Measured scan of single mutants.
Amino acid sequence: VLKALERTRQLDIPDEKTMPVLMKLLEEAGGNWSYIKLDNYTALVDAIYSVED
């Protein structure tokens, strides 16, 4: 979780936006981090930006 938060902080995305999206992605992935961690957490960042749209 810390590495995911560090990555999104680099992009000026607050933890308050990151955590709900991260928890949803983890739930959808059955707790499997490998998809979320791919390409420096690209799936997480993309999911956060899609929620903002």
Rank of each mutant, 00 (worst) to 15 (best):
S50H: 10
K37N: 09
E27P: 00
V45H: 02
E16K: 08
R7P: 06
E27M: 10
V45R: 04
T18G: 05
D39E: 09
V21W: 03
A43I: 10
W33Y: 03
N40Y: 06
Y35D: 12
K3M: 12
L25G: 01
R9C: 08
L2H: 12
A43L: 14
V21T: 07
M23S: 07
L11E: 08
K37L: 14
D46P: 01
E6I: 10
A43Y: 09
K24A: 10
E16R: 05
P14W: 06
I36H: 00
A43N: 09
A4D: 04
A29R: 08
K24M: 10
S50K: 15
E52S: 13
E16I: 09
I36R: 00
L26K: 01
W33M: 04
I13F: 05
S50L: 13
D53W: 13
R7F: 13
L2I: 13
A4G: 02
M19Y: 10
L11D: 05
L26S: 00
M19F: 10
V21N: 02
V51Y: 14
D15W: 02
L25Q: 02
D39Y: 08
D46Q: 15
T18N: 01
K3P: 03
K17V: 15
E52L: 11
M23G: 04
K24Y: 07
E28S: 11
K24V: 07
K17C: 11
L26V: 04
Q10V: 06
D39W: 07
K3F: 06
A43T: 10
E16H: 13
V51S: 15
V1K: 04
T8I: 07
M19N: 02
S50T: 11
I48R: 02
E27T: 10
V51C: 09
G30D: 12
L5K: 03
L11T: 04
A43E: 04
E6Y: 08
N40M: 06
K24G: 06
S34Y: 15
A43K: 12
I36S: 01
I48Q: 00
L11A: 06
E27A: 14
L22I: 06
D15C: 05
V1G: 03
E28T: 08
K3I: 07
S34R: 09
P14I: 05
R7L: 07
E52G: 12
Y49G: 08
D12E: 11
T8N: 03
L25C: 04
Y35K: 11
K37E: 15
E16Y: 13
K3V: 06
R7M: 08
N32P: 02
L26Q: 02
L44V: 06
G30V: 05
E52D: 13
P20K: 12
A47C: 06
P20A: 08
N32S: 11
M23W: 10
L44M: 02
G31Q: 07
E52C: 09
L44E: 00
A29C: 14
D15A: 03
K3L: 13
N32R: 07
N32F: 06
A47Q: 05
K24P: 01
K24S: 06
T18R: 01
E52K: 12
N40F: 05
Y35C: 08
L22Q: 01
V1Q: 05
G31N: 10
W33H: 03
P20W: 12
I13G: 02
